[in-house]
Amino acid sequence: MPVHEMRYRSWEGKVMPVPVRLLSVPRYTLLAVFNKYIAAVLLGIGVLQLIAYTGYLVIVTMPELQNLLDLEEVPVRLRDEQIFRYFYSAQYYVCLLMVLLAAPKMISPELAHRSIAIIFSRAIPKSGYILGKVIALGGLLSLLTWVQTSLLFFFMHVLYTPEHTFHAEFWPDTFMLFWKTLLLGVTMTVVLTFVGLAGSAITKNARHAVVLLLIVFLGPGLATTMISEIFRVNVPPVSLRHLTQDMGYLLYNPGELVRDTGPVWVTFAMVLWIAVAFGVVLRQLRPHRVYRE
């Protein structure tokens, strides 16, 4: 209809409460992420690894298949540990790829064309907007981490019936591991979510955000390794990959030292990563900074 064939009509309807209106933030953010099919493909790969490990569990619980694959020779504990180590390594790398793919789409596009100005002119708190973004990226990463862990343990619980011969020696350890691995998955998700959002908030260009995140993920590990090698000093590992590995190791072997460091250092470093990333997001989204022209 051409301009002015209709008169302006105001709107007087029921206004939704703030928590309800904030739900649209993760919804529209995820829509933007899944505009690219590769995100869906990556999510599919993440789900595939769960299916693969579940398949593996089916194999080890079926004596006929074990005989066929000569799995009886493998000690149960080794098999138990290996499955989780492979599982977590794969989880971390898929997660990392997902962060590189999805995180730049979170805040950068809204900074690029300054739509954040019209978003913040709405009656929503900044903290709510950030929470919406955390839910979007955190939810996506959760599907690849602790949700999968929970599902995996659920399948194990179903498959490892009390009658099964492995149950007695396998299940009690595994059940204890569940809480530890859940904690590791949640921690990894939180750290990667905040780091991803910080990378996205720091630049208006999504491609620059990818490069920046790569540097953040790989740089500290590379730097500490080089410093350790060149100066022959023991630098605590600060890269996210090392920390995730170490945290996983600590979860399996509580009380032991990792690379001459202990659980305090690993926890401190993880909290530091979260705090720095959260600080960057808050700083970048200060309204008068966003509005500066």
Binding site: H113, R114, S115, S121
Partner: peptide
């Protein structure tokens, strides 16, 4: 509020 500068979300 209608800002002076461009304001949209790409895509």
């Amino acid at each position: 509020y209608m800002p002076e500068h461009e304001s949209y979300i790409e895509g």
